[in-house]
């Protein structure tokens, strides 16, 4: 199994390790709930070096693979976009930052090799930087811990020197909180993490990362979106550029335009459950009368709301906020309601 450049640090901190996308990653240190709440109230530090950083110098070919306006992305700005296949399915969701000389992309760990093969197969010249470290510093106190990057606003990207370490910092993340994602050379990763921990960040693992992103209503690739998902059904319309949809010069544009024009058979919704029992990925969703209308794709107990929450796909006519649904867990229905996303308000600094 692969290890990140921070592996020794995780073990020193007493992390409980788990396998994720072929990597040994920290699931938790002190406990998922404490780490989750530390991120919402203070600042949490996540090792996300398993994600793939890569550089693309020539964006024309790359633009033809994504529905976002990458050509219109100004230097120093970052955008969320999607790699789509011909049928409009999501091959991956990714961050793209314009760093002037090139754009930087951050790919999901489970998809990075396939993404690179896909891009190269379509004539995109990609330089992988998979040996780099990537840290996510997230929470309302992130900016106190990283004053070096205080000049950035939400979705800005810039090179920043942090105590003699050359970093690429973006003001973004996957928790719904203010914060930064900080890339640096793999060999600098541990020193950078130690510095941020010494400044008061709480180490947090993938367990808290998952419950935080779910509260923030953010999709997890492989759970909530995959190659069979149309971005329109997944509620990712915000990642579709009007200009690009009109010009249609990207892979999957026909399928995406069709979904926008005609609607989709199902939609991703947030669901709040009554009681305390969570419904997990795979749970069937029924109308209270018993008719099956969908399935849960992610479910967790929300530490912030002190209640279970879930994401799932339901038949389009059952997606209205307030719709009563039953989630089937251990052969019993758990009552839930379609709820607005995010479950917990975002706290970005724009």
């Amino acid at each position: 199994m692969a290890k990140t450049p921070l592996d020794a640090l995780h073990r020193r901190l007493g992390a409980r390790m788990m396998e994720f996308a072929g990597y040994e990653m920290p699931l938790q240190y002190q406990g998922i709930m404490a780490e989750h709440l530390a991120c919402r109230a203070g600042a949490a530090l996540f090792d996300v070096s398993h994600m793939g950083q890569a550089e693309i110098a020539e964006i024309e070919a790359f633009s033809r693979l994504v529905p976002g306006d990458i050509a219109g992305l100004k230097p120093g700005r970052q955008r969320y976009t999607l790699l789509l296949n011909e049928t409009g399915g999501v091959l991956d969701d990714l961050m793209v930052a314009n760093l002037g000389a090139h754009v930087q992309v951050v790919l999901n760990a489970s998809r990075k090799e396939a993404d690179v093969a896909h891009m190269r197969g379509h004539g995109v010249d990609v330089t992988t930087r998979f040996d780099r470290a990537l840290l996510a510093l997230q929470g309302p106190k992130a900016v106190e811990i990283l004053p070096e990057a205080a000049h950035l606003k939400f979705m800005d990207a810039a090179p920043v020197r942090i105590a003699d370490i050359d970093c690429i910092v973006t003001r973004s993340g996957y928790t719904g909180e203010d914060g930064f994602e900080i890339g640096c050379a793999g060999f600098d990763g541990e020193a950078l993490a130690e510095l941020l921990l010494a400044r008061g960040a709480t180490p947090a693992g993938l367990g808290a990362r998952d419950s935080l992103r779910l509260e923030a209503g953010l999709c997890l690739y492989g759970n909530d979106i995959d190659e069979g998902t149309n971005p329109v059904a997944a509620g990712l319309g915000f990642a579709l550029s009007k200009k690009r949809l009109a010009d249609g010069h990207f892979l999957g544009s026909k399928a995406v335009n069709k979904a926008l024009a005609e609607g989709t058979t199902e939609s991703l919704v947030g669901i709040k459950l009554e009681g305390r029992a969570p419904a997990r990925a795979g749970a069937e969703i029924r109308l209270p009368g018993g008719e099956a209308v969908g399935r849960v794709t992610s479910g967790v107990f929300s530490s912030t709301l002190n209640a279970p929450i879930a994401l799932g796909y339901v038949r389009a006519d059952c997606a209205k906020i307030g719709t009563a649904l039953d989630l089937i867990v251990r052969d019993k229905p758990l009552a839930g309601t379609v709820s607005a996303l995010p479950f917990v308000p975002h706290n970005y600094v724009r």
Partner: peptide, 9 residues
């Protein structure tokens, strides 16, 4: 009986 943690049942 069933116990559910944040992450799993």
């Amino acid at each position: 009986a069933v116990v559910e943690s944040v992450k799993a049942a």
